[in-house]
């Protein structure tokens, strides 16, 4: 049967399994320790979390599924760390292999990239946690702190050069908008998740206009 068809079938099956598995974790904890959650705290905690995370989650599904392809999407959403790791990693892989997005090559390569990335992440975290006594002083050393505090600027600086140099006409508007926005309203720093699709909409709008006018 068709690879893509099967990918969707397996993907949906596995994601449903993961959903059940994740729900079983708190249930198992509750049963094992013979305790119930603090419902008042639960409710108030959810109020602070659900409106934002469910919105961002929905937006991520719409934004990233086209980028990741079928297999990549199912795997990436299960394994997490999309914006800061999986999606740029896929970008990097497609870039290095010189493959166009949306093709079957891209579909297959992005699945591979996401899977490998998950293995490495799990291995590093497992190693780190198990070696914790040796690792902690090093990782928490004040000398190295600035490096770890600046991962996102370092990551997106390099990535930005790659994409902006190819599509600078589309890039200008969302970039200027976002930089101005964050300078004027620094409190938005915690809302990057919501602003990613805003940037995407601006970019798409600009691209459409330029495309129609044959300026791309």
């Amino acid at each position: 049967m068709d690879y893509r068809e099967n990918t969707h079938r397996y993907g949906r099956f596995w994601v449903m399994t993961v959903i059940v598995l994740l729900l079983l974790v708190p249930v198992a904890i509750g049963v094992y320790y013979g305790t119930l959650p603090d419902f008042n705290g639960l409710w108030r905690g959810l109020l602070g979390v659900v409106p934002i995370f469910w919105t961002v989650g929905a937006i991520e599904v719409f934004t990233f599924t086209p980028m990741l392809g079928a297999g990549g999407t199912y795997l990436a959403f299960i394994t997490g760390n999309l914006t800061n790791l999986k999606v740029p990693c896929v970008l990097n892989a497609l870039q290095a292999a010189d493959v166009k997005q949306g093709t079957e090559e891209a579909e297959v390569l992005s699945t591979i990239a996401v899977a490998v990335s998950s293995f490495v992440t799990m291995a590093i975290i497992a190693l780190g946690v198990l070696l914790l006594s040796q690792v902690e002083p090093l990782l928490e050393s004040p000398a190295l702190q600035p490096a770890f505090e600046n991962i996102l600027p370092a990551l997106f600086g390099g990535l930005g050069v790659v994409f902006i140099s190819k599509n600078w006409k589309i890039a200008v508007a969302p970039l200027v908008f976002m930089i101005a926005l964050f300078i004027l309203m620094p409190s938005l720093a915690g809302s990057v998740g919501i602003l990613v699709p805003v940037g995407a909409l601006i970019a798409i709008g600009v691209a459409r206009i330029l495309y129609r006018k044959n300026l791309l």
Binding site: L152, L155, F156, F163, A171, M178, I179, V192
Partner: peptide, 16 residues
């Protein structure tokens, strides 16, 4: 698709 990527990149570069 490029626009989607650029949107994400611009949001994060703005955050910087």
């Amino acid at each position: 698709v490029s626009s989607l990527f650029l949107g994400m990149i611009s949001a994060f570069l703005g955050l910087v």
